[in-house]
Design a protein around this nucleic acid. Structure first.
Ligand code: ZN
Ligand code: ZN
Ligand code: ZN
Ligand code: ZN
Lengths: 139, 139
DNA sequence: GAGCGGATGTAATAACGTAACGCTTTGACG
DNA sequence: CGTCAAAGCGTTACGTTATTACATCCGCTC
């Protein structure tokens, strides 16, 4: 979590996209959480400061942040996590602890493509592992 | 595609779970589709025969079928596909064509766990690759 | 037939996400 | 500087996905 916002600033400056105050605020909330966050939770947090937040507000910001490679969507949870490495080019592999909700992200060039069908061209991968992290008691 | 229902009958007999007519009907619809199907689409198809289908009806059937290893949920699509190999023990890897919606399932013992964090115990994996299959025109 | 557990029916609502429209801000350009 | 187009954002309304809670039914056992 240290420096995620600063990294985002640098990354956006380099790639020429606009990290507006609203988008930066949403990224800040996602990064602060340190765990998967729901869109409507972000919504209610934004609402505390400005009464004007509606669903499109937060979804647009999240779309931007995902496009910019600053946030990943956790598909099986309908939630979002901040990426610890702004704008990395490869697919993210997420290890999600079902006990403490901690998420560890690792990256690889072609993760999970062990037996790819001949001729298939992968454009996007969703790789999420659910279980128990090292810090949580194993049954 | 051929024999999915018969395989399901055998598998449920062997594991001692009840593949009721309703559950079998839902599995039949998912298998017939040959592509990811949405829960509410199943719902409307069931409705054609019995006016009594409501959301819990189909979600309960799908929960059972997933638990039994007869159906997989495609997380990034909020949809469901029939498993070609009833009750296989390993994680499924899905290759989903974004052009023709065809899904190819392959299986492996620990797919996508290239750099698993030390001490993490994986209970469930979601591995979905999106792109273009061999039969669809590549740009 | 009383009791029990699993399966299903039913109503209501929660949770998640998007379309469409208009106003405002930004930044490029003459 | 004034103009203009594109991007960003507010707002309303709606569509889609999923669950909770409670009632009922059915097959089984005692
Ligand atoms: Zn990442
Ligand atoms: Zn944990
Ligand atoms: Zn399978
Ligand atoms: Zn295809």
């Amino acid at each position: 979590m240290p420096g995620i916002l600063e990294d985002a600033d640098r990354h956006c400056a380099k790639t020429g996209v606009r990290l507006t105050p609203l988008r930066r605020r949403v990224l800040e909330l996602v990064a602060q959480a340190g765990a998967p966050v729901k869109a409507y939770d972000l919504l209610s947090q934004i609402d505390q400061t400005a009464t004007s937040a509606k669903p499109p507000t937060v979804y647009r910001a999240l779309d931007f942040l995902m496009e910019a490679g600053l946030v990943h969507r956790v598909e099986a949870l309908n939630a979002f996590v901040a990426c610890p490495q702004a704008g990395h080019g490869h697919a993210a592999v997420l290890y999600v602890c079902e006990s403490c909700a901690n998420v560890t992200e690792v990256q690889g060039s072609r993760p999970g493509q062990e037996n790819k069908p001949a001729g298939f061209t992968v454009k996007r991968s969703v790789i999420e592992h659910y279980g128990l992290c090292a810090d949580c008691p194993h049954p």
